[in-house]
Write a protein that binds this DNA or RNA. Structure first.
Length: 325
DNA sequence: AGCCAGGACGGAT
DNA sequence: ATCCGTCCTGGC
């Protein structure tokens, strides 16, 4: 059993965003299933989030709205770690946060691109300044996608908790106990049989494949970032266990392509209702309508619709647990 | 108890 | 190119 690591506060970083910036709903997505990788404190509107700079250099962040602290739009991050950090480390932390939350993205161009659809006006008004968030690495987001595929959200949560408690690191900082995501190495050194015991089912083989792929190709992330959309999609699907569904999640979240969205079983129902007033329309019809309304921004528009729905109806979480992902 | 849903794959067509 | 059985588990 691995020990809990205590992290010490190192410093504070201020990061500005291109306005408009919505701190709360950029760092916190009500529609995402909760994991112990992060914890959003509603009362203080602070986001606690872990990640690592290397196998043994662990970071815990406490992020808040820069607007409140310094009157500028962006994020103020308290940095905690188990190691002392160099200037280069701090620079890497900055760029990670900035990329994960799209701080340098021009969100106005999205609003301009969808002005012809009145149905998106409400969500945009409510969530103005919200961006895609993906604090995960590519390896991590593909693990999450694998656990989302072919099951209900309730089971995905279970699998995630089992994997994190077995292979992740426990950390403790600023009064929070969280996990840090496991690495490809942690999984490769394990076995398919061990994964199966964590109730991930047939995914055990896929999770092992993905970990193996990343331990053999450590530069895969950086390579994919420089590729064209088509090449990146192809590159992702070369990994055994990664099909169109997982690739889309990686493309939208990690590679930040605004046109990607999976109309999986629960989203199909939501958008069917949103477009046609009933839950029963087929995926193809829903997808056509989304493309018609939102063109190559359909992923981003979908995000606004979904998050707005979850903000207005917190009980959506419970409805979705029973529905496939 | 039996059957189905939910992605990915691989083999058959 | 498209179709089908298989993998696994939980829910009906």
């Amino acid at each position: 059993m691995k020990r809990t690591k205590k992290l010490q506060k190192i410093c504070e970083l201020g990061l500005e965003a291109i306005p408009p910036f919505n701190f709360k709903y950029t760092v916190y997505k009500p529609s995402h299933f909760p994991t112990k990788l992060e914890d959003f404190d509603e009362a203080s509107e602070a986001m606690y989030r872990t990640f690592r700079l290397s196998q043994n250099k662990i970071i815990g962040l406490k992020m808040a709205d820069l607007q409140k602290a310094r009157g500028k739009e962006g994020i103020i991050a308290e940095v905690f770690s188990n190691r002392s950090l160099t200037d280069q480390d701090l620079q890497r932390i900055r760029s990670h946060i900035s990329y994960a939350y799209g701080l340098n993205e021009d969100i106005e161009s999205f609003y301009k691109a969808v002005t012809n659809d009145p149905s998106i006006k409400g969500p945009i008004k409510k969530l103005r300044g919200m961006r895609v968030s993906c604090f995960e690495t590519l390896f991590e987001i593909l693990n999450i996608s694998s656990m989302l595929q072919n099951t209900t959200v309730k089971r995905s949560e279970q699998m995630m908790e089992n994997m994190l408690s077995s292979f992740g690191r426990r950390v403790d900082y600023d009064g929070r106990q969280l996990y840090v995501f496991y690495t490809p190495k942690d999984i490769v050194e394990s076995s398919e049989q061990m994964l199966r015991e964590l109730k991930v089912g047939y995914r055990a083989k896929f999770l092992m494949e993905i970990a193996r792929h990343f331990s053999i190709n450590p530069d895969l992330e950086e390579r994919l970032k420089t590729m064209s959309f088509e090449d990146a999609k192809e590159g992702l699907m070369e990994i055994r266990g990664v099909g169109p569904y997982s690739a889309r999640i990686a493309l939208f979240q990690y590679l930040r392509r605004p046109n990607e969205i999976n109309f999986d079983s629960w989203k199909r129902k939501i958008f069917s209702r949103c477009f046609f007033g009933n839950e029963n329309e087929e995926v193809e019809k829903v997808e056509r309508e989304a493309k018609q309304r939102w063109g190559d921004r359909m992923g981003y528009a979908g995000l606004y619709v979904i998050e707005d729905l979850f903000v207005r109806n917190p009980e959506m979480q419970y409805w979705r647990k029973k529905n496939g992902s």
